[in-house]
């Protein structure tokens, strides 16, 4: 089992969700985070003065998958989130030792889907 963590552009969330559904991945957790990377922040204007922030709003996705779903998940996220411009985001993959469904207390692979 793997835990996929992806940081993407907020406006790409809908597309990524759509691609994930197509790959039959329906379980995800979404949160709003601030990211800091190579991309310069969008220029904002404060009463006429331009300010470039370097902490950018990003969306963080967490998806737990069985190993055979890992590649389709990564492909789906890339397909939905990629524009080719700096700021598209990152995908991290971690080993998932255990997964428990609270309702049934099932453990391991069957608990993921």
């Amino acid at each position: 089992m793997k835990l996929v963590i992806a940081i993407i552009q907020p406006y790409k969330l809908e597309e990524v969700k759509e691609e994930l559904y197509k790959a039959e991945i329906n379980l995800l957790t979404v949160s709003e985070v601030l990211g800091h990377g190579r991309q310069k922040g969008v220029t904002e204007v404060y009463r006429g003065a331009r300010e470039t922030g370097n902490l950018l709003r990003k969306i963080r996705l967490e998806i737990a998958v069985n190993d055979n779903f890992l590649e389709p998940t990564i492909k789906a996220i890339v397909k939905g989130a990629k524009t080719g411009e700096t700021g598209d985001g990152k995908i991290f993959v971690l080993d998932l030792k255990e997964c428990i469904r609270i309702r049934t207390e099932e453990r391991g692979s069957p608990a993921i889907g």
Binding site: P10, Y11, K12, E14, E32, L34, V42, T43, E44, V45, R57
Partner: peptide, 18 residues
Amino acid sequence: ELVGLDLTQHRERAYTIL
């Protein structure tokens, strides 16, 4: 449209986080 009109039309946003 997807990014939102606040940032793209006015270069401002209504709410900050953190």
